[in-house]
Design a protein around this nucleic acid. Sequence first.
DNA 1: TCGAGCGATGTAATCCTTTACATCGACTTT
DNA 2: AAAGTCGATGTAAAGGATTACATCGCTCGA
Lengths: 334, 334
Amino acid sequence: MSMPTIIQVAAMAGVSTATVSRVMSHPDRVAEATRRRVLEVVESLGYKPNVAARTLRTLRAAKILVTVPDISNPFFASVIRGAEEAARDAGYAVVVGDTRHDPSIEDQYADMLSSREVDGLIFLGHRLPDNLRPLMAMQGARAPVVNGCEYSPDIGVPSVHIDNAAAGCDAVEHLIGLGHHDIGLVTGPHVSPISRDRLAGAMQAAERHGLRDRLQVRVGDYSAQSSADHVPDLVAQGVTGLFCFSDEMAMGAISAIRQAGLSCPDDISVIGFDDLPLARFFQPGLTTIAQPKGRIGQQAVELLVNILQGGDSPVSQITLPHELVVRSSTRLIG
Amino acid sequence: MSMPTIIQVAAMAGVSTATVSRVMSHPDRVAEATRRRVLEVVESLGYKPNVAARTLRTLRAAKILVTVPDISNPFFASVIRGAEEAARDAGYAVVVGDTRHDPSIEDQYADMLSSREVDGLIFLGHRLPDNLRPLMAMQGARAPVVNGCEYSPDIGVPSVHIDNAAAGCDAVEHLIGLGHHDIGLVTGPHVSPISRDRLAGAMQAAERHGLRDRLQVRVGDYSAQSSADHVPDLVAQGVTGLFCFSDEMAMGAISAIRQAGLSCPDDISVIGFDDLPLARFFQPGLTTIAQPKGRIGQQAVELLVNILQGGDSPVSQITLPHELVVRSSTRLIG
DNA sequence: TCGAGCGATGTAATCCTTTACATCGACTTT
DNA sequence: AAAGTCGATGTAAAGGATTACATCGCTCGA
């Protein structure tokens, strides 16, 4: 039937509800004998404290919500893992929400914060949910909201990310260093700040070598299909080095390159972004920019927990190091 | 500061809390003018009902929990997507928990059900969390718990899955049909019922062609690395056709095959399982068994919602169709 | 021997919403 | 004009747990 309540447990153990509550939350404040008796009843009844009631009373849910724009992107999985572990260490559980890039779903998950179902929110997308505006306005940097990956200075939310401009720069420098002059870029959507940053870095690198005008820029959406669609055109433009802003797009591009009767890396070098777990198993092994995915999640949680505990050091922006991983999808031209 | 409560809204709008509550939940039972006045105050204060209090009172959280054993496996992402959409249609939100195959984490998420934080649970792993035993014992098939993918008859939980034995059979038949006699299998862990079923089906197919003794069976854990590790040995055994119980393992195997100086499919044909989004972009395009991932999630939710609404038709086991997708990682021998 | 001090436990207010039931005014019906 | 309806709103009792404060025995010191 219905779950047993603390009242039933108390009655059956011959103590007050206060004592039962103490047994559950502060066992040391209860005499050994009493504790044992209560625990026996708890066991036999299968009693579980009602979290809604507890949350209502304590204003603490012991839970952190992590929202991702696309749960099928393995990149986020690793970030979530890192967050999960750090949260567990700090006494919080993590629940995940998939917003599918849909603002109304983002809002719905954000409501879990406003309504106190969770203590804090880490959002991995690029847009601060509208519903959070009032909260941010009221609490500013003390609001329990942290962004991961997609730093956007104007939203005024603490954030953990890599230096995407520098990373974009590194990728293009790598291609240029291999002798490529006709370089193609498949970016993310324009609204994505990380895509803008990577693009800016890439252009800067090209500029530096006087190759800015020969850069071929195409817009993708981080999915394999979206870059595959651009490949025929890029091939026609004579591109020999291709920088895709995600590993999935790199894989899509390589597949399309072969479809076009060409070879990666013999005809076209391709470099990706993220270093997904599968990147090293792909054929050819993917050259890519590795992000410290786990650490991004971990640090985001630490930032959040610090806010939740009223820590006064408002470290608001954390930049983590990235790394160029060279495998076999890029090689010297010619 | 702290969030506004219904009492403040009521005071400011000059009505009772009951009216405010009605405006939020049953707008039609409130006079037009009053409703507008209240909504204005709600807006200006940024009032959001406290979900803990509401849940406590109504015993309904409007939320479904989906737990996955490994969130980095893209297979589950698609299942979650399907579940999310179906849940939304039924008026429920979905939250996801990553258990990392850890029983204690499974238990912790299961507690969200016992404690009424969520109305129902869909678990995608193979093990019923211990914490749920009492609940299942009490409520039997009316417990709001559904399993996805990993049907295990002994746990007595409604479930949605494909016919894994038949699928395993199809895969091996495909290889045999291409002329392969020395067939290798990389399974999942022994504890996984789906792995056992696929293995049984595969053996049955081999048996049928008198090839049972030549079957080379190795145990993996669904990860790319785990199958890559077995490849040198399998190659030494003269295997020409390899059936991996996941696409990730197929990709790992293909990578290792190349590492060994051989080619897929020229020397060894490889068939995977799941038809991940990336399967068609892999080199070579992966031959694989496609599962209706989205529909699995969707049907699981429908089963669950039916239970939640006290539906009396205890359809407990749903078998969905699978499909062999032939791409270029398998070919005629010789 | 008596009171201070202390550990263990009980009492009861509180967290915020929902909702059955009561109330109230206005309108219809006969 | 009295009685009955009806729609809109208010009143107050849950719902289950936590915790400040009160209480009750005891022990210990003087």
